[in-house]
Structure formats: structure tokens, C-alpha cells
């Protein structure tokens, strides 16, 4: 039985007898190579559930922010989660954004999510009209082209060095767990960037972030960014300007990264959401690396651990303090 059918059956069962009001999952999107969030409240709707390499959005976001009226407030929701998404659930449970009793976690094993912008680069911008994925290659067709691309070349940055592809915390697990991935290269992109001179790093930072149009899609799809009022939206005092001034833009991103320090699960939703294809994860990864090396923590992996930035050890390394 394929995982999709298993998923639908589980969802039907939860809706029928599990006391669950809705299943939050993905269904096919309106475009080729896309998926869209689905809030299935009936058995028929549950038959639209899918899980494949297009199911990138981290659905935990529907438990937070003002979207919470959808998933919370007296409703019991089943939610389908990949490895990274499950870590978001763990974090949000710890931070009291979700009540454990309000959620049934349906875990799936993940083979990585396709980054549409990488596929577009491969097709030279020509529109993809058909898409399929055999687990090793994806094939994309459009007017005047029909190409196979190795998956590894179009996977999201977040998935290239993913360590926890299976939902770590789940009530129901669908399919075969892939197990923890041993990767030496978890922080490869960070290390490569660190090698560059300060001058060069600044040039790259400028180049990347000057593309930002301040649409906040990155922030809004992030399940860790749930402040009732984000610091960029505060206007009394107004902390940062709203124009495309580069220093304002960079400050927005640096502070957002610090706000999700020890709370980012590296799901890559922000990067995939960005309409300007800014390689946002590099900074998240850098922060994750510091958090891991300094505090020995990974977000949302240990359900009992406090989030890194609200915790401390007295004897911690403080090499950055003036001697």
C-alpha cells in the first residue's frame, strides 16, 4: 500500500472515530509541481490528502499567530508532519502555543522537498506543465522540453543535509521511517561561507539581501515567528524603517534570525516562500551551528529540553567576552 492511501485511511479513521475535527495536510496545488494546505473536515475531503516532494509548507504555522483560530480554539486537529515540521510541533508545545490534547500528530518520512526555483533554473525559466518524481530523478515537461533532473540537484537547501527526515514525535506514523541520516556536511554551506574574507562576506550579504522586497512571506510562513506584533510592525517606537534601505533590510533579517535562534527547525519554508529566491537559510544554519556547538542543542529534537535561548549553563564557553 502506498503511503498516500495509508495517509488517507488514517485521516478518515481519525475523523470518524478519533474525535478529531479536522486534518491539516496537503492536497494537490493548482499548478504543476505544487501542493496546497488542506483542512479536511470530512472523510471525502480526507481523500484529497497527498504527500510527496511538493509538500513543503510547514503546517505547524496554522497553530500559531492569528491563524490560530483555524487550528486552535476548542478544535482538535490532526496534522501531517515531516521530520522538520514535527520539530516545530515539539517547539510550539514547549512554548505553550499548542496544547498536546488538541493535536494528533501524523508523522511521515520525508525524502526531501523540491525547490521550485531550482527547477526553474534548470528549465531556463520555461514553465513546467508536468512533473513526476521517481525517487531518484524528477522529470519535468513543458512546451518544447522534457528533462530528467537528479533529485539532489533540485532539493531545497534545507533538505540537502537534513538529519531528521522522520517525524520524531508522532501519534501515528505512516510509512517506513528512514532513520536518522548521518551527514558530515550538515553545516557545509556555512563552513564554505566562513572561509571567505570579511570583505567578501559583506559583499555577498549585500547582494543577497538587496533583493528583498520586504513582503514578509519568510516571516509569515514560519511557525517559529508567531509574535502578536512583530518588531518590524511596531511603530511606537518604530525600530526599523520600511523602505528598501539595505541596512534596514539586513537588520530585519539578522534580528529575525536571532528571534528564531534555537527555535528554527531548518524546515526551509521561509526560503521556498521568498518570491525573490533569497538564500535565507544560510544565516539560519549559521545560528543553528553556533547553538549546536556552544549549547549542544538542536531545536525540537528533545521534547523535554528548554529552547536554547531561554536556558543557560553557568560554566559555558565565553570566548567572545573580552579577557
Amino acid at each position: 500500500m502506498n503511503i498516500q492511501q495509508e495517509l488517507r485511511d488514517a485521516a478518515r479513521k481519525l475523523l470518524a472515530e478519533g474525535g478529531v475535527d479536522q486534518i491539516i495536510g496537503w492536497s494537490s496545488g493548482s499548478l504543476p509541481m505544487s501542493s496546497t494546505p488542506l483542512f479536511a473536515a470530512t472523510k471525502e475531503e480526507a481523500d484529497d490528502l497527498i504527500f510527496d516532494a511538493t509538500c513543503g509548507s510547514n503546517l505547524t504555522v496554522y497553530f500559531t499567530k492569528d491563524r490560530r483560530q483555524i487550528a486552535r480554539d476548542g478544535k482538535k486537529s490532526g496534522v501531517v508532519v515531516k521530520g522538520c515540521d514535527a520539530r516545530s510541533i515539539v517547539l510550539n508545545l514547549k512554548e505553550n502555543q499548542i496544547k498536546r490534547d488538541d493535536v494528533v500528530i501524523i508523522g511521515v518520512p520525508c525524502d526531501g522537498i523540491i525547490d521550485r526555483s531550482k527547477v526553474e533554473d534548470k528549465t531556463g525559466g520555461r514553465e513546467v506543465l508536468e512533473f513526476s518524481d521517481n525517487g531518484k530523478n524528477i522529470s519535468v515537461k513543458g512546451r518544447g522540453f522534457d528533462i530528467d533532473i537528479p533529485r539532489t540537484e533540485v532539493l531545497s537547501d534545507s533538505c540537502i543535509s537534513c538529519v531528521h527526515p522522520d517525524a520524531g514525535m508522532s501519534d501515528i506514523f505512516i510509512g517506513e521511517p528512514r532513520g536518522e541520516q548521518k551527514t558530515k556536511d550538515q553545516y557545509l554551506s556555512v563552513e564554505q561561507f566562513e572561509e571567505l574574507s570579511a570583505e567578501e562576506r559583506w559583499e555577498r550579504t549585500k547582494q543577497e539581501y538587496s533583493k528583498c522586497i520586504r513582503c514578509y512571506a519568510c516571516r509569515n510562513v514560519c511557525p517559529s515567528c508567531y509574535c502578536n506584533e512583530c518588531f518590524v510592525d511596531q511603530n511606537d517606537p518604530q525600530w526599523i524603517g520600511k523602505t528598501l534601505d539595505l541596512s534596514d533590510t539586513i537588520i530585519f533579517h539578522v534580528i529575525r534570525n536571532l528571534h528564531v535562534a534555537g527555535r528554527c527547525v531548518e524546515c526551509g519554508s521561509c526560503e521556498r516562500a521568498c518570491p525573490m529566491d533569497i538564500r535565507l537559510l544560510l544565516l539560519n544554519r549559521k545560528v543553528a551551528k553556533e547553538v549546536a556547538e556552544r549549547f549542544g542543542m538542536e531545536t525540537g529534537v528533545d521534547p523535554d529540553a528548554k529552547p536554547a535561548m531561554s536556558d543557560f549553563r553557568e560554566g559555558e564557553k565565553q570566548d567572545f567576552i573580552m579577557g
Binding site: T36, P37, F39, V61, Y62, K65, D66, R67, I70, I213, R214, C215, Y216, A217, R219, N220, V221, A273, P275
Partner: peptide, 13 residues
């Protein structure tokens, strides 16, 4: 509106 995350991507493009 259920799935909308209220970003500005649509309006800005």
C-alpha cells in the same frame, strides 16, 4: 482565507 498566511507576496508582485 483559511490557508492564507497574510504575507505581502501577492500584493507586492
Amino acid at each position: 482565507s483559511a490557508k492564507c498566511v497574510n504575507c505581502g507576496a501577492c500584493s507586492f508582485t
